[in-house]
């Protein structure tokens, strides 16, 4: 993990609130692995804490981030222009483990699609299907459907309002299909539903989690914990999302009701 000044290669608007940031960061990109994240820091030290953002793609010396503007920091980064500089630290955490199962699903909800893009490139095309859930048609602008179609067998999309693909959530398009392995990232309600699904059907799965961070992955502040089961018992312990995760084994993780 290093702190590095990144140079903005491009910053493209995908939808009204989602943008794709391409950064030249050779030091971090060199070590980056699928499913890891980086911390992006605000220019103004009024906002001190790191903004954790998943690595969406790794292209040589460049990293691609897919960001949704939701607050101070992500709105500041939206205004970055070509050749601007920005401080980032990374790569952070444990990412996805590549498997060679026959029936693999990538399940992404909203901006949680981000880390699945690089993953789609690494998994065998003929074994991998993609299930994406978004709010409305406009959001098709950031889901990289074409890229997923190129890298995977099939892509299904669900929209909450039914304006594109199937109406409903990503759970609705998963239907009764059986998989050997599921990789997922998305909002908590989606992960909770998926957890029930994989537990019930005894499917292996990896989830990428989100939690508020202080130190941004150094593992020193203990802000970012999630509940992880201890062995096969009912017991659990707090583990750090930033260093134990952000990708965890779905069987191990416990969500509060």
């Amino acid at each position: 993990m290093i702190r590095e000044v990144a140079k903005v290669v491009s910053n493209n608007e995908c939808t009204s609130d989602v943008y794709e940031l391409k950064l030249l960061v050779p030091g971090i990109a060199k070590d980056a692995k699928v499913g890891q994240f980086v911390n992006v820091y605000c220019k103004n030290q009024v906002n001190l804490l790191p903004r954790p953002i998943s690595i969406s793609e790794i292209n040589g010396d460049e990293l691609v981030l897919l960001c949704r503007a939701v607050g101070v920091g992500t709105n500041e980064f939206r205004d970055l222009k070509e050749n601007d500089e920005i401080v980032i630290m990374g790569p952070v955490g444990h990412g996805f483990t590549i498997c060679n199962e026959q029936r693999i699903a990538l399940v992404g909800g909203g901006i949680g699609i981000a880390p699945l893009v690089e993953l789609a490139k690494l998994l065998p095309k003929e074994s991998t299907s993609v299930y994406l859930g978004i709010g409305k048609k406009e959001e098709v602008g950031f889901i990289k459907e074409e890229l997923f179609r190129k890298e995977c067998m099939g892509v299904k999309v669900a929209t909450m309002d039914g304006t594109y693909g199937t109406k409903g959530t990503v759970m609705d398009i998963l239907g009764d299909e059986i998989f050997d392995m599921i990789y997922a990232c998305g909002p908590l309600p989606m992960l909770k539903a998926l957890k029930k699904y994989v537990d019930k059907n005894n499917i292996k799965a990896e989830f990428s989690l989100e939690e508020r961070m202080g130190c941004g992955g150094l593992g020193t502040c203990l802000s970012c914990v999630c509940k992880i089961k201890v062995g096969d018992s009912e017991k659990w312990e707090y583990k750090k999302v930033c260093s134990y995760g952000p990708v965890v084994d779905a069987k191990e993780v416990l969500f509060d009701e």
């Binding site: 939690e211 508020r212 961070m213």
Partner: peptide
């Protein structure tokens, strides 16, 4: 970091929040 005799579990999350030029934490001395 603060250490106690026995392990302490700490508090539920969210444990941190950003504030203007600062932050709040309630780690609970995990």
């Amino acid at each position: 970091k603060g250490v106690s005799m026995e392990p302490w579990l700490g508090n539920p999350t969210p444990r941190v929040a950003e504030t203007t030029s600062g932050m709040l934490n309630s780690i609970g001395l995990q």
